[in-house]
Design a protein around this nucleic acid. Sequence first.
RNA 1: GCACCCGUAGCUCAGCGGAUAGAGCAACCGCCUUCUAAGCGGUAGGCCGAAGGUUCGAGCCCUUCCGGGUGCGCCA
Length: 597
Amino acid sequence: MESMSYTYDRLRDEATQLLTATGLVTSEHITLANPKPNIPADLAFPVFAAAKAAGAGNPNEFAQRLASDIVLPENGLIGKVEPAGGFVNFAVDPARYADSVLAEVREKGDTFGNDPTVGADRNLILEYSSPNIARKMHVGHLRSTVIGHSLYLILKALGYQVTADNHLGDWGTQFGTLLAAIDQEKLTPWNDPDPVQSLVEIYSRFNNAARENPALMDDARAWFKKLEDGDVWARETWQKLIDITLVEFDRTYARLGVHFDTTHGESYFEPMLGPLIQEALEKGVARKEDGGAVSVHFDDKLPSCLLQKSDGATLYQTRDAATCIYRWNTYHPVRNIYVVGAEQKLHFQQVFEIVRRMGYTEIADASLHISFGAVTDATGARFSMRKGTAIFLNEVLDEAIERAIGTIREKVAEGKTEITEEEIPEVAEMVGIGTVIYADLYQGPERGIKFDWDKIMAWDGNTSLYIQYTHARCRSILRKAALTPPTPSFASGRGGAEERGGGEGSLLITPEEQVVLKQLARLPHAVREAGEKFLPATVAEWTYNLAREFARFYDKCPVLTAPTPELRDARLALVSATAQGLKNGLTLLGIGAPERM
RNA sequence: GCACCCGUAGCUCAGCGGAUAGAGCAACCGCCUUCUAAGCGGUAGGCCGAAGGUUCGAGCCCUUCCGGGUGCGCCA
C-alpha cells in the first residue's frame, strides 16, 4: 500500500527534493528539524553532517551554497529558502499552504489525521485495563484503561486490525481465598445490595485473619487447587463471583466509553497450562525441582521464576506465557502489547523470554510491555484496598461530573453559555470524564502520578476542559454564521475564492491565522508518532497546542464581524477546520467534544 | 546486593544529538458596550541532580556517583 501523503508530508518531501536536486547532498544525510519558535521558518535542515560528507570545510558556507543553489518550483508549498548559520531554513508559501491544509481537513473530516497505510490491516493485540474479579476498580486501574483505550483508537486510526483484550484477573489463589471464606462462613455475597463491596470486604477480612493464623492461607491454596481441578461447587461459586463483578465493571467502562473486542480472562487459558508446562519441560526450558515445583532459570541476566508450584497449581507467569502463545497461534499479530503497570516489568521480561526459549521467537519479538508509574496519594504512599485508603474509580467519575455540573450552572447563571437545561447532564459527563482521562494522558506514562483531587479536576490551562471549551467556541461561531446568509465564496467551498485569483488561504496571512493552520497540518504527524511510540500524550499535546493557538486567534481576529465578507468566509473556514481538528484529537484520546458548554 | 524507571522554573510536566531550554499551575500587573473572560496579554521565576567523557555541537549519548520510586519463584 502506498503511504498516505498529507500537506505536511508533502512539505517535508518538497524540502528533501529541493535539497537533493542541488546535487550537493544525498537523502541519507537529510534529517529535517523543527525550527525554534523565534526563527521565521517552518522546517530546518542542519547541514553539519552533510557538509562533512561533502568534504565542505565550513558548514555556514555550505548552507549558503545549498540555499543559493535551490530553485523553488512555481506552485510548491515552500515559499522561501534561507541559510542561517549552519542551517537551511524553509518557510511555507502562506497562501498555498493554507489552501492545501483547509482543503484536506474539509475533505477528510472525521478521518483527518488518520493514516491507514501505516498499519495496513495487520493484526495487533492490545491488552489493557485487566482488573481483578471480585475487586472494585480504583484509581490505580484508570491508567491502564485510559492509556490502553487511547492507544486502541490511535492504532485503529493508523490502519491496524486491533484486538482489544481485557485480560480479567479471574484466576489464581485469590479465588481460593474467597472460596475458603465463603465456605467457612456459609456466605452469600451475591444476594447483598452491593455484591462487589461484599467480596472486597470478605477478601480483606480473610487476609487480615490469615496474618494472625497462617494456616488459613493453606486452606485458600487448597481451594484454588480444587477450583483448578474442576470441583463443581468451586466452579459454580467462582462463576457467580465473575458475573456479579462484570455487571459493575461494564457500567464503569460504559461511562468511560471504553471498548473491548475480547475479554478472555486468565481462566480461559487454563486448559492450555498443563500442556504448556509439559512442552517447557520437554524443550528443556523448565525443570522439575526436588519439591515438585517447575522452575525456569535464565542464566545470570534474569532472576529465575516458577511455572508450577509444588502443589501442582499454576502461577501468573504460566498463564501469561500461555496467553502469549495463544495470541500468536490465533492472530499472528505484528505487535502484542500489554498496557500494565511498571511493577510488572520483570514479570513480562520473564514471560517473553520463556516464550522465546520455547521457540516462539516471532511472538517474543512482537511482544511489548507498555508500562506506567503507580498512582499514589499526595504523600507518595500507594493506595491500599486493605487499609481502606483506595479511591474507587466510580467515586472519581461521580465527583468529576458533579463539579462539571456545578461549573456549567455557574456559567448559565452568568449568561455565558447557550447550553440548555436538557443538555447539561450529557455535557457534564463529557467534561467531567474528559477531565479525568486527560489528567492521565497529557503526560508520559513512566512517571508515577500523585493523585490529587484538585489537580485531576483542574480546569485551567492544559486540561481537557480548555480544549473542549475552545471547541465549543468554534461551534458557537459556526452556528451563528449559519444564521446569516453565506456569501457565494463560502457556499461553494474553495471554488469561489479561487476564481478571484487565490484561495481563501491567501487571506489568512496574520501570524495568528498562520500559526493555527500550521498546527492543524501536523495532526497526521502527531498521530503517527503516537503510534510509533505508543504514546497518547503526543496527540494530547498536539490538541492542546491547537486549542491554545486558536484561543489567540479568537482574541485577535474577529470572524463574524471581519472587515470584508471574503475574510469572514476565509476565517470561518479556519474555525471550521479547527473545530474538526480539536474534535479529532479529543476523539483519539477517548474524550468527547461538546457543541456547547 | 542486583535490575529497571524517574531527577529540567516554587509545583505538575514538554523538550527527534542542533540555533536564545519551553508550557500549565501558583504569584504579581493589565484586558469584557464586540463571535462564550472556562479566555487573552504581560512581569517574575533555570549551574536541566553532580562529576567526568564522546561530538563541530549534549537537557538528550557513554561512565561513575548522589537522591526518589519499583521489582527480584511457590501472590497477581
